[in-house]
Write a protein that binds this DNA or RNA. Structure first.
Length: 278
DNA sequence: CCTACTGTTACGGC
DNA sequence: AGCCGTAACAGTAG
C-alpha cells in the first residue's frame, strides 16, 4: 500500500538493520523485476558490496553501496521489504533476496509484481527509473502556496489530479490526497484554476503536516515489523475519509461520499468540502 | 462469477 | 503539443 509515509516507514525500519552489512548472496527468482541493468549486471555489481545507507525520494527507495553504486526500488502497489533471519518463513511472492553477512536476508516480496529495481553504477546518470522526473519533496521549504499555484493552479484539471502528479510534488498517492483535501476542506474534483491564493497557502502548509502525522503514526519497532511482515500499517485508524465512504464525517457528521476523480476512487465530505466544481 | 484495488506508463482520440 | 480517459501490468479480496 505504499505512498510516501509507508515508503518512509520502510526506510526507517530497514536502514539501521542493513547499514554496514555486506551482500554475500543474491537470489533472483523473477529477473523481470530488475529493470536495469540485466540480471547479470545487477548481480555482478552487488556481490560482495557493503551497504552504506538508504534514502527515499518520493515513493522511491534507494540503497547506497560502498563502491558508489546505488540501488533504486519502487514498491508500486504491493511491494514490500523485510529483513529476516534465515529460518524465518518466507513470504509468498518473494522475488528477490539479498543474503547479508549477519545470517539475515533482505527479502523483496510483491504480490502483483509491479515493483521494480534499478542499479546505477558510480556516477551513472539515472535515466531509467523516473526519479529524475520527480517534482519537489513535500518537506522541501520550496513547497509554498505560490509554488503550488504556479504549477497546479493554471489549468482546470481536478485539484486531486494535481496532487497525484509526481512531477510537481513527489510522494502523494490516492489515500493521502483524499486526507489532505479533507483537512483543507477542498472538493477533490474542483478544477485547480478555481482555487484562490489562500487555498494554495493552506495546501502548502497541510501537505507536509499531514504526511508527517501519518509517518509518525506508522512508527514501529523492527521486531514487530518482522512479526507483522511489514504489513501492519498502524496509521490506517487515523484515516478520516479514505475507506470510510458511507460513514459519518468526523467533523460534521454528514455521510461521506465516494466519487471517481481521474479514474481514482475518492472519498470526501459534501458538507466540509464544498462542491465548487459544479 | 464479478468488481475493485494504495502506482505508473502507454496509447488512442480530441 | 497538451489534455483526458482507458487499458495494461498480475494477483487477491470481498
Amino acid at each position: 500500500m505504499p505512498e510516501l509515509p509507508e515508503v518512509e516507514t520502510v526506510k526507517r525500519v530497514i536502514e539501521p538493520q542493513i547499514r554496514g552489512r555486506s551482500i554475500t548472496g543474491l537470489m533472483i527468482r523473477r529477473p523481470e523485476i530488475i529493470a536495469h541493468p540485466g540480471e547479470g549486471g545487477f548481480r555482478k555489481s552487488l556481490m560482495g558490496r557493503t551497504i552504506c545507507g538508504m534514502g527515499r525520494r518520493g515513493k522511491f527507495l534507494m540503497a547506497f553501496l560502498d563502491n558508489g553504486s546505488r540501488i533504486i526500488l519502487h514498491l508500486r502497489m504491493t511491494g514490500g521489504l523485510l529483513l529476516a533471519p534465515l529460518d524465518f518463513p518466507e513470504e509468498k511472492h518473494t522475488h528477490l533476496v539479498f543474503r547479508l553477512d549477519n545470517a539475515k536476508e533482505l527479502r523483496f516480496s510483491d504480490t502483483r509484481r509491479f515493483g521494480r529495481f534499478w542499479l546505477l553504477r558510480k556516477d551513472e546518470a539515472d535515466t531509467y527509473s523516473g526519479i529524475s522526473k520527480l517534482g519537489i519533496e513535500p518537506f522541501d521549504p520550496a513547497l509554498t502556496g505560490a509554488f503550488l499555484q504556479e504549477h497546479m493552479g493554471k489549468r482546470k484539471r481536478a485539484v486531486k489530479d494535481c496532487l497525484l502528479d509526481q512531477s510537481i510534488v513527489a510522494g502523494i498517492g490516492n489515500i493521502y490526497s483524499d486526507e489532505i483535501l479533507f483537512t483543507v476542506g477542498i472538493y477533490p474534483a474542483c478544477p485547480a484554476n478555481r482555487l484562490a491564493g489562500k487555498d494554495w497557502e493552506r495546501l502548502a502548509g497541510i501537505i507536509p503536516q499531514r504526511l508527517s502525522f501519518f509517518i509518525e503514526k506508522n512508527e514501529i519497532a523492527p521486531e514487530e515489523y518482522l512479526q507483522t511482515k511489514g504489513k501492519d500499517y498502524r496509521n490506517t485508524p487515523f484515516l478520516q475519509v479514505y475507506g470510510h465512504a458511507g460513514e459519518s464525517c468526523p467533523k460534521c457528521g454528514r455521510t461521506l461520499c465516494r466519487i471517481v476523480v481521474s479514474g481514482r476512487s475518492s472519498v470526501y465530505c459534501p458538507g466540509c468540502q464544498g462542491e465548487t466544481a459544479g
